[in-house]
Amino acid sequence: MLELFLEQLVNGLTVGSVYSLVALGYTMVYGVMRLINFAHGELFMLGSYLGFTLLVSTSIGELGVGWGLIIIVLMVAGAMALLGILIERVAYAPLRKSGRLAPVVSALGVSIFLQNAAMLIWGSRYRAYPVWAALDRRWEIGGVHITLMQAIILGVSINLMLLLYCMIQRTTLGAAIRATAIDQETARLMGIDVNAIIRFIFIIGPALGAVAGVMVGLYYRQLHFTMGWTYSLKAFTAAIMGGIGNIPGAMVGGMFLGILEMLGAGYISAAWKDVFVFVILIALLILRPTGLLGERVAEKV
């Protein structure tokens, strides 16, 4: 009994940390621009595909798990950061002053575009990440199995999140981001280059998403051009659960969602797990209308 619980807990934390990484991209963009960036999930998906291509058609993978993985992740994160800036410039920057919903539809357009681009480049069938035997090493700790890949996902995500948290809380740049999130106009008057902050957000978010994408590819091995939708929905749910615009909230929300999902799959049924997740989400929002940790978004009254 306890073993199943712990097993699902480890699985949940693994998936949850991926959700957290993707949710951070949502919540940071939301915090600064009040925009639900539906295209974010596609960057995660493209990151996963790009990692796949680098692994299959170059020899980077031969450098071994350590360096090989680091180089691939850095390259993919860089590429997605560039794409993130480009998307912001083309699809969101012109709409900064025009209501809440026009940018959302623009984001949906970008999402459709990227999804179909991926389908044209990599085909509409499932692609499989090559087997990387070293990643399947397993340990047994107190009756619970954990693979090296799970350990990497947990380690990398938690470290990245701690790094981001410290950056936001401790550095001048972080203070500027927080100020921009509270009030763009005032931040501008205080000498903060709001456009630069927005560009920076669109570097960090997609880069984190891309890291998550590569790790998910290595973990589940299966790739499909629609995977962006699925993860995007989950990550967005996670961001809302934690309280949107709230960076620790996205981290907690992602973990919470991952654990919920895996416990739901383990104890209820795999077919009903998403229903379980959304019912909990709705119940949570009825009780706490601004998520677990509350939102950090100044509301215009």
Partner: peptide, 13 residues
């Protein structure tokens, strides 16, 4: 669908 997505962005912009 590629053009369709792009058209959505262009129309909104």
């Amino acid at each position: 669908m590629l053009f369709f997505g792009a058209a959505m962005v262009v129309m909104m912009v």
